[in-house]
């Protein structure tokens, strides 16, 4: 029983991490029809620079972690904005080329990070409380899981409120549904593109810092490996659906944890099969609109 509880809670924690990457991917795809392969690089840079600044402020302290998170968000957002303005925008409406460019940026950026920070993971120092555990119905849950879940919930709420109550949110929601009609109402939808990239980049950068807390290290490759899971989550949830991404993140991560424990480490395999199954039964994903 306590094992199951532990697996479920850590699964939700991992799902929180997936969500931070997948939320941006899903919004970007929904609005722009670009599958952003550079998203992992946003995460890695957020994690790496967040760590660099955070440890100077206070290694292993709450203050340091907070600064890391802020820096991670900022860095992720800036990287994303530059990517959108300099590269994506010039290839307006040429979706294949846009995907290719993000592939190139992803490869080049990660290689550059390797050049700067090396290819081996760098061990990070955790805040003492995050190293401890809390007992929940007999299960000793690592405290960093609560941080992950808490932050992901805040991010989810913030994005939902932004989409719901701001003019840009309105444009983004309408654009996900029918971008052509948004421009036909006289709205320059490109501003919304930049904003969506910035939001996605900020969430990914924050995800980078939290990934370093979760795994206990940072590395140039962290984003790339998380990106594949995030893709799977995004597609299962339905490209363009934020709620879908949130639900699929948790489902997939929990499934992965359970399979890893009960089915002899087959978690990765199971979620890949889940993706294939979902796509074949419901090509638009769980909450996606039929094309």
């Amino acid at each position: 029983m306590s094992t199951l509880v532990l697996l479920l809670i850590t699964g939700v924690g991992l799902g929180a991490l997936y969500f931070l990457v997948a939320s941006g991917l899903s919004l970007i795809y929904g609005l722009m029809h670009v599958l952003n392969f550079a998203h992992g690089a946003f995460l890695s840079l957020g994690g790496l620079l967040g760590w660099e600044v955070g440890r100077r402020v206070g290694d292993g302290t709450w203050g340091g972690l907070l600064v890391s998170m802020l820096v991670g968000m900022l860095v992720g957002a800036l990287f994303a904005i530059v990517t959108e303005l300099v590269f994506i925008r010039r290839l307006y409406n040429r979706h294949i080329e846009q995907v290719l460019v993000t592939v190139g940026i992803g490869l080049a950026a990660v290689a550059l990070f390797e050049g700067i920070w090396g290819s081996d993971p760098i061990i990070t120092t955790k805040v003492p409380w995050l190293r401890q555990t809390t007992e929940v119905v007999g299960a000793r849950v690592p405290n960093h899981i609560w941080l992950l879940i808490g932050v992901a919930v805040v991010v989810l709420l913030a994005i939902v409120l932004f989409l719901r109550f701001t003019r840009f949110g309105l444009v983004i929601r309408a654009g996900v549904e029918n971008r052509t009609m948004v421009t036909a109402l006289g709205i320059d939808v490109r501003t919304a593109f930049t904003i969506v990239f910035a939001i996605g980049g900020a969430a990914a950068g924050l995800g980078g810092v939290l990934a370093s807390v979760y795994y206990g290290n940072v590395s140039a490759h962290q984003g790339t490996s998380l990106l594949i899971y995030a893709f799977i989550v995004t597609v299962i949830g339905g490209l363009g659906s934020l709620t879908g991404a949130a639900i699929a993140s948790v489902l997939i991560a929990v499934l992965q944890q359970l399979a890893n424990f009960y089915l002899g480490g087959t978690g990765d395999l199971i979620i890949v099969l889940a993706l294939a199954a979902v796509l074949l039964v419901r090509p638009s994903g769980l909450l996606g609109r039929a094309a």
């Binding site: 290839l91 290719l100 460019v101 940026i105 080049a108 290689a111 390797e114």
Partner: peptide, 15 residues
């Protein structure tokens, strides 16, 4: 970093 250079060349070609 060869991949950095190749990736950058790739981006330039696409653009």
């Amino acid at each position: 970093e060869p991949i950095f250079i190749l990736g950058s060349i790739f981006v330039l070609i696409v653009m």
